[in-house]
Amino acid sequence: MSKSPDSKLSQFLYNKWYIDELYDEWIVRPLWRISHFCWRKFDQGLIDRSVNLSGRFAKGIGWFGSLFHTGQVNTYAFFLTVGLLAVLIMVIT
């Protein structure tokens, strides 16, 4: 029984049982996708972001504090009065 060279079986054998293609599809590509996920979403998106957020949190507190330092003497005088009153109230009660 002779088969023509482009029969399905010979194609299948010629392509080495498509092992390389299967390997590529089932192992290489998923691993590549996992790797990208690990880097972009997990390492940069989650871990590094939370690291930078903690930095920004500290900056935010500093910014909030800086709001009270306007450079205008009457603001400082106002806070001085508020502070004095607070101390006085504490001393009295």
Binding site: L31, W32, I34, S35, C38, W39, F42, D43
Partner: peptide
Amino acid sequence: LLCAWTAAVQ
């Protein structure tokens, strides 16, 4: 594991 994977796509 995770850092090996992450390294691979740098």
